[in-house]
Amino acid sequence: MKTVLCYGDSLTWGYNAEGPGRHALADRWPSVLQVALGQGVQVIAEGLNGRTTAYDDHTADCDRNGARILPTILQTHGPLDLVIILLGTNDMKPVVAGPAFSAVQGMERLIEIIRHHAWPLGQDQTPEILIVAPPALCETANTAFAAMFAGGVEQSSMLSTLYADLADETGCGFFDAGSVAVTTPLDGVHLDADNTRAIGRALAPVASMMLGL
């Protein structure tokens, strides 16, 4: 049995901007990935609204710092064969970090944590890592989200190229979710059901190859 951890934010949690609420379980991209990979693989969805790569959000009622919580998540779900990281959007909130390059620095920290983790019994090698760039933000008439992510449309358009370069430098896999999915103008940030399913379908052959299936 192979085990895949999907580590992300609201795009992994399944935030539905039409509600607002949560997409049906079957529509969330980790669920679609699970169906595509089959019963020989366990896909674990670990999504949290507002999660950053490595930055504090002092407005939250939970710990959204992805770097601080990651060791606990790794220890909880190990042993792991593949970690898919879909993070970076929330880093581009001006109140959190702002520039796209901040997300790159945070992503690099997450890679370091995974590769130097003290794995539990039964894991004798570091899992593969797949960096996924989130779809770029789009313009929205939602004043709250537009203000929350001020400057994010421009910054998020840079993230795919920056993440691809980081993947090359660190020997990680890379996938641009923006190549198959677009954010909804309802809030400029999240995905409708069709687009989150599209990410799960597109990741299946990449994950399969990295798992050696």
Rank of each mutant, 00 (worst) to 15 (best):
A60N: 00
P94N: 08
Q123P: 02
A118S: 14
F149E: 01
S10P: 01
N65R: 09
A24P: 02
A36R: 14
G66D: 08
F149I: 03
R64D: 06
L166H: 05
M148T: 13
V4M: 05
T196P: 01
Q155W: 07
P30L: 07
Q39M: 05
G106A: 07
G78A: 15
V180F: 06
D27W: 03
G14H: 02
H23S: 09
V153M: 12
R22E: 14
N16D: 15
C62L: 13
Q42S: 12
V95W: 10
D176E: 10
T196S: 06
G98C: 08
A24F: 07
A97R: 12
T76M: 11
M158Q: 15
Q39P: 02
H117R: 01
T183R: 04
E128I: 00
L191T: 10
R201G: 08
A146Q: 12
N49R: 14
D9K: 05
V35H: 11
T89Q: 08
Q75V: 02
G40R: 12
D187Y: 08
E112T: 14
N195T: 05
P79C: 06
Q34D: 01
L37N: 06
P71T: 06
C172G: 05
A54I: 06
A45K: 09
D176K: 07
A167V: 05
P120I: 07
S102N: 12
V4G: 05
V32I: 12
H190P: 02
P20A: 14
M209A: 14
D187M: 08
Y7M: 00
V96R: 02
D9V: 06
I131N: 04
L33G: 10
L82N: 01
Y163E: 01
D63C: 15
V43C: 07
H77E: 00
G151T: 01
L11E: 00
P71S: 04
T161H: 15
G178V: 03
T161R: 15
P99D: 11
I85W: 10
S10F: 05
F174Q: 03
D61I: 13
G178I: 03
I113Q: 05
P94E: 08
L86W: 05
H58E: 13
H117A: 13
A136F: 01
G151H: 04
P127F: 10
T183G: 02
V132W: 10
L37W: 09
A136M: 04
L70M: 10
W13D: 10
M107S: 05
A204Y: 10
V96F: 03
D168M: 11
L186R: 13
Y15W: 13
D91Q: 10
A193M: 03
D57C: 04
D192I: 12
I199H: 04
L82C: 01
F149N: 02
D81H: 15
A136L: 01
T12P: 03
N90P: 00
G152P: 09
L86R: 03
E46T: 01
L166N: 04
V104F: 11
A177R: 07
V32P: 01
G188I: 12
E108H: 14
A54W: 12
W29A: 09
A100V: 09
I113H: 07
V182K: 14
P120S: 06
P120Y: 07
C138R: 04
T161L: 15
R115D: 11
L162D: 02
A133I: 05
L137Q: 10
C172E: 04
C62W: 15
A164K: 12
G171Q: 08
T196I: 11
A67E: 08
G88E: 11
L137G: 03
I44C: 12
Y15H: 11
